[in-house]
């Protein structure tokens, strides 16, 4: 079980309010991802849930019981830190055993759970090493192992993959997703990598300056962002936001067109411009188009085999059914 409910939670450091009143419910078994720009309060929110910071006001309840004043150890949550926070002088085995030892679980049961966790995380060969003798990915797995053996009500991850290289990150991302499928435990995951957010989440919480901008499944956020901030934040490459007369044609202050929803052609189309950079990724090509008269730069995502070069003239046509419209406040118009 692990249903986490935040009601009117606020947090101030001194007289700086980092989190204005905030309400959020994370259902049991859900994989929730907090995303947002740097400094928006993701870590703070996670630490409030963990109990490592005291809330300034409001209540946090876990499984229906109020936990606002409960110390971190008693909340039944496990946290994986960005720096892993392994205990450097203990072997991997002792690191994983530590929470069980503190909980007074008997030796035989401890060993059983350590073996199981080590097997699941491919750590069996490393149990007697010290953290200093492991690679980044292995350390990450030890940190996860240490969290698993406690059988917590929920896992909290604070940017767990940001210290890993790109290839390893993809691997660990899958492993964490698999772990979630297998354990069916609530997970809250902080990241500012939106690929992680899109691929792993059941529910994405987009934060800006401590305020929740939108909560929803990855596809909801992708298909109907509720304002220009979410529209610009979710999706990669970023959505093109266009203001002015072109937007007025659609009765909107701003229109948003995703790079993948633009058709390009060398001969004709609604909009035109000059290619400034074309990035060939093999599978796709990203064209950065200037001199369109619409915005500084329009990004287009097209298939891998187009051969536009710097300076070429291109024509672009947006797909009419997936144009997002926003009003003067930046809110979505349905």
């Amino acid at each position: 079980m692990g249903r986490i409910q935040l009601e009117n939670v606020t947090k101030s450091f001194g007289n700086v309010e980092v989190i204005p009143p905030l309400n959020l419910t994370i259902e049991d078994g859900e994989f929730a991802v907090f995303v947002g720009p740097s400094g928006c309060g993701k870590s703070t929110l996670l630490r409030l849930i963990a109990g490592l910071e005291d809330v300034t006001s409001g209540t946090i309840s876990i499984d229906g019981t109020e936990a606002t004043q409960v110390p971190p150890a008693k909340r039944g949550l496990a946290m994986v830190f960005q720096s892993y926070a392994l205990y450097p002088h203990m072997s991997v085995r002792k690191n994983i055993a530590f929470p069980m030892k503190m909980a007074g679980i008997d030796e035989a049961e401890q060993n059983k759970r350590i073996e199981a966790a080590a097997k699941a995380l491919n750590l069996t060969d490393y149990l007697d090493r010290k953290p200093g003798q492991l690679s980044g990915g292995q350390r990450q797995r030890v940190a996860i192992g240490r969290a698993i053996v406690r059988e917590p009500a929920a896992f909290l991850f604070d940017e767990p993959l940001s210290n890993l290289d790109a290839a390893l990150r993809v691997g660990m991302r899958l492993e964490i997703s698999e772990l979630h499928e297998r354990l069916e435990t609530t997970m809250i995951y902080v990241t500012h990598d939106q690929v992680e957010a899109m691929t792993m989440a059941d529910k994405i919480v987009v934060l800006r300056a401590g305020v929740i901008e939108q909560v929803g499944s990855p596809l909801e956020l992708y298909n109907s962002p509720c304002n220009t901030f979410v529209a610009g934040f979710i999706g990669s490459p970023k959505m093109n936001l266009i203001e002015g007369p072109e937007a007025a044609k659609y009765n909107a202050q701003t229109i948003g067109v995703r790079p993948e929803h633009l058709e390009v052609s060398a001969e004709s189309g609604d909009w035109s411009g000059r290619v400034s950079v074309s990035e060939h990724l093999g599978s796709d090509t990203f064209l950065h188009v200037h001199d369109t008269g619409l915005a500084d730069s329009i990004t287009v995502r097209t298939d891998g085999n187009v051969s536009f070069k710097h300076g070429d003239r291109v024509f672009m046509t947006p797909r009419a059914d997936v144009i997002h419209r926003f009003d003067a406040q930046g809110l979505r118009i349905e």
Binding site: A50, L77, M79, Y87, F98, M102, A103, R150
Partner: peptide, 8 residues
């Protein structure tokens, strides 16, 4: 903090 979460 990790140790605190681990119940120490």
């Amino acid at each position: 903090e990790a140790a605190e979460m681990d119940g120490a």
